[in-house]
Amino acid sequence: MSKSRSELSLILTGVARDPLGLMGLIIVGTIIFCALFAAWITPHDPIGMNIKDRLQGPSLTYLLGTDQLGRDTFSRVIMGGQVALKVALPAVFGAMIIGLTLGMIAGYGPKWLDNLLMLFFDTIRSFPTVMFALAVVALVGPSLQTVVFVVMATSIPTYGRVARTQTLTLRNSEFILAERSMGAGMARILGVHMLPNIIGVLAVLAAMDIPTVIALEAGLSFLGLGVKPPTPSWGALLKDGYALIRQTPWLVVGGGLPIILATLGFTFLGESLRDVVDPKLRKQR
């Protein structure tokens, strides 16, 4: 336990020493902080309407102005961060776990199973993400769960492929051969010896995947096919902003900037994590 803790602090120090990494850490930290304490930070009720004050510009009362129903944009932006993370974290985590399991099975199991799983991965990847999302939404209807499912389904192949490649490389390494010759079973080899060597790479991949997921959630909500109103999501803000683009620029700005900031933050953090955890990966992709 203490070993993994010191490793973690080592990684964090490494990230903080890189200027872009530090910036990523600060942005991501701020977003997570705002999401956790959204209920205390938001100056107004994010779904509370006040028609009298509709479509106002920024002021001290309404930091980013109000929308067509007089809802405070700033409060909705803060609350939207919570929604974005609520979709992104479970989806990325779920995809990572499933992808990891399938990828390790593909890499370690029999050849026919490997081929089958690869075909499965390739098939999922053959749908353009948004088109796949649209097809699923058309069939089962829009909701937070649908978005999480779509995101999970579309990113499983990425994790699966990386986990498979890693397993294939490790499979014939000396320490695994030694384990096998001593009679270690498949579960033990995969779980105890291979997993720690694969999980780091996948964690980096997950950090870099979060922006894509946030963007997809926002995109679907922008199309009116993601989370349902009145839930404040960044995409929903953009949807309102798009409809009112000639009346007020603040909704588009308020919805767009957090998405760009979040994407930047997670990308910086992910790249910096990658360099610290495994410098060899720098050349790939």
């Binding site: 922006p211 963007a215 926002a218 995109g219 922008f222 953009l238 902003g241 798009y242 683009i245 588009v252 700005v253 767009g256 998405i259 760009i260 994407t263 930047l264 990308t267």
Partner: peptide, 10 residues
Amino acid sequence: AAPAFVVALL
């Protein structure tokens, strides 16, 4: 880092 639809809107 900039998602296409946000760039499109802005």
